[in-house]
């Protein structure tokens, strides 16, 4: 039995849409820009309630990033919306120069991240975005795990001054975090206390880490499950405290192993607390078309992959 249960599944992008509507109601400076994906990004409610603060940009993402930087210069708090691929790789230089280097208060909100985008295939399955964004100075990078956490994160980033990349997804996934939670940027959340291994999970993989913990418990292994929703700035103390106890670590993310959460954790540990570590993520390949669950299994992102990684890393202690 998992230590968390759920009664409902919803997509994290809908959590973004609900959060955006709420920040729109609470702060007249919040504006939203969308590159022809209003429905996919769940920005329709904001558009309908605040048409004067919603800007349809068309299929022109580079322009959208510049517009957002200009609106931020004028004191607005722009939220841009498109798929993760078009939110990062396509517009990297625009983000780098006009937003990150220029320290603009722009919230880059990206849906359909990772392989769970499914049938559209590798052109749209963005698996490099966390790496691209975390490398940029001044950028905060957040990857929430379920509907409620995504909504809370959306509300939190509106209050935070500075550029943010907020990444979420397409499929319906379990809702297992509380409604109306207080989201603290840069603060890891301990979901399950344990002593034999530390599992650091972000985004959709947190639920799989929780499922893996139940399997491990049945084998007599005590796993600590920690949610790193903020990839940058990384909650270094939470990671070090957990690893000090467990002496080994597994990172789990729906992203390339190269440049993702695992890399950030490993960088920290190798400098401050060298520790055996395993990575659950996509191993230097593009994705393909298929159902999300099939893809998660094929690309090594399932509950069992976390379970196996734990067994392997414990052997290395």
């Amino acid at each position: 039995m998992t230590k968390y249960t759920y009664t409902e599944k919803k997509d994290t992008r809908s959590g973004f849409g609900a959060g955006l509507l709420e920040v729109g109601r609470n702060n007249p400076d919040v504006v939203a820009l969308c590159a022809d994906l209003t429905g996919s990004l769940k920005m329709g409610d904001f558009r309908n309630e605040f048409p004067e603060r919603f800007f349809q940009v068309g299929i022109a993402e580079a322009n959208m990033m510049g517009l957002a930087a200009g609106m931020a210069t004028g004191g607005k708090i722009p939220f841009t919306g498109t798929f993760a691929n078009f939110s990062t790789g396509r517009v990297y230089d625009q983000i780098r120069q006009s937003i990150a280097y220029s320290e603009k208060n722009v919230k880059i909100c990206a849906s359909h991240a990772g392989i769970t985008l499914g049938e559209d295939g590798a052109t749209h399955q963005m698996l490099e975005d966390l790496g691209l964004m975390k490398m940029l100075p001044n950028m905060t990078v957040i990857n929430p795990c379920d509907y409620n956490q995504t909504k809370a994160a959306t509300i939190a980033i509106a209050k935070h001054h500075g550029p943010v990349y907020l990444r979420f997804g397409r499929p319906k996934v379990p809702i297992f975090t509380p409604e109306d939670q207080n989201f603290e940027i840069g603060k890891a959340v301990k979901f399950i206390e344990g002593s034999d291994v530390s599992i650091f999970a972000t985004g959709h993989l947190l639920w799989h880490a929780i499922e893996a913990e139940a399997l491990l418990a049945s084998k007599g292994i005590s796993a600590e499950v920690i949610n790193i929703h903020t990839i940058k700035p990384l909650d270094e103390q939470a990671i070090l405290d957990s690893v000090m106890k467990s002496k080994c670590a597994v990172a789990a993310e729906e992203h390339q192993i190269n440049g993702g959460l695992g890399g950030s954790v490993s960088q920290l540990l190798s400098q401050q607390l060298p520790t055996p570590m395993e990575m659950v993520g996509v191993n230097d390949s593009f994705g393909e078309s298929g159902k999300p669950a099939e893809l998660m299994e094929k690309y090594g992102l399932g509950t069992n992959d976390i379970f196996e990684a734990v067994l392997k890393v414990i052997e290395r202690k």
Binding site: R53, A62, G66, T73, G75, D93, K104
Partner: peptide, 24 residues
């Protein structure tokens, strides 16, 4: 008010700033 040098970006920024002025 903005970094520039990598070309082609300033017009978008200016348009965004102009729309912010209108909103305000």
């Amino acid at each position: 008010r903005i970094a520039s040098g990598s070309l082609g970006q300033g017009l978008s920024v200016a348009i965004g700033a102009a729309q912010a002025k209108k909103l305000s």
